[in-house]
Design a binder for these strands. Structure first.
Lengths: 190, 190
DNA sequence: CTCAATTAATTGCCAGTAGCTATTATTCTG
DNA sequence: CAGAATAATAGCTACTGGCAATTAATTGAG
């Protein structure tokens, strides 16, 4: 079997796995789009939890995302705050109920299925490269993790609770911040 | 990073890759459900290309699938035939236009992204195991490839154009048949 | 052999979703 | 300070997908 056939079958497998996940998602009181939003809010840093960034991340539109977030808010999984830095903007954060809901994320079941193959690391690395290729092809943004960004300045205030710094937004960053997805992320190499 | 974290991140990557594929699917004149149906018809053997099996495969309902197929038929990508073996049932097959459309399948782009990681084989094997786990968990059918089924009898008539045989349906099978997905598939081991 | 139960497919109906566009409020730019 | 750009949202529309009812064919029990 040629490598292109291997790859094609892998793509089909991804398709089917995802469909099973979506089937699991239909079961609860959240739809797939709402799950994706909830996951994003859990993984994004506080500068990125806005409707506009979420729309970019999901490849959706702002109007659509606005309703998705309104629905999550109504169900009590997230809370809205007016942005302190931009009067037009709002920011969202998970509530305790939201955190709890994520513990039943259907994606966790898939993660377990992958872990059981004992090849989780290889799969993750390959898929990460594949996503990189795919994002490049689509001309989209990478949405990388904060600490891998060119604006990230590590250990500016060692020992403090927010030891790092973002040179772009001029903000202090905790360890948790630096592990989160950031919408402003720019790759390091020029 | 623990293996469960690796696996979780792999699951997230699958989620994002699939979303990019879906975004690509929105572009053409087929929607995601129609693409999935078209792919299934291309990969399923002639005993399995019915609305009922497709609904099972997609984890959807017959009513929904009925419309999806009607739409594909109207667009000229597939043709409908009354089943010879069951007067209630219909069977579908790709037209030349359908074959041609599949050449622009957005999933092919994903396959190329995976191939470029040079880890296609490892990914495929891991995902195949993961899918097996996932299907087991959901209690669903595996929909395996014909020649791996317990009813498959190889080389019953060597040299003929349909050398193999299905012991369940009592049908002669060509090489192409034996490489296709079958809705009646049952695993070999008891 | 006959009639009831089952199964295949389709259609009408309805709820929910996503996208487009216009609107309002705010910020940025020159 | 005026005009352009941006953030978010609401109205509208088209589409999708599921449920339930219907028609047609097959199966099976007596």
């Amino acid at each position: 079997m040629s490598s292109s056939q291997q790859a094609l079958e892998a793509a089909h497998l991804i398709d089917r796995l995802e469909r099973l996940v979506r089937a699991g998602e239909q079961a609860g009181d959240l739809n797939p789009a709402q799950w994706e939003a909830l996951r994003f809010l859990a993984r994004a840093n506080r500068f990125s939890r806005t409707p506009a960034f979420l729309a970019d991340y999901l490849g959706s539109t702002r109007g659509t995302v606005s309703r998705t977030l309104a629905s999550l808010e109504e169900k009590g999984y997230i809370v809205r705050t007016d942005s302190a830095r931009d009067g037009r903007s709002v920011e969202f954060a998970l509530t305790a109920a939201g955190e709890k809901a994520l513990k039943t994320d259907p994606l966790l079941a898939l993660a377990q299925d992958i872990e059981r193959t004992t090849m989780a690391k290889a799969v993750r690395e390959a898929l990460r490269k594949a996503l990189h290729n795919a994002v490049q092809r689509n001309g989209g943004r990478a949405f990388g993790v904060c600490r891998t960004c060119r604006h990230f300045e590590a250990q500016v205030s060692p020992g403090s609770r927010a030891p790092h710094r973002c040179g772009l937004l001029d903000e202090r960053l905790s360890q948790a911040d630096s592990d989160s997805i950031c919408a402003e992320h720019e790759a390091t190499a020029a």
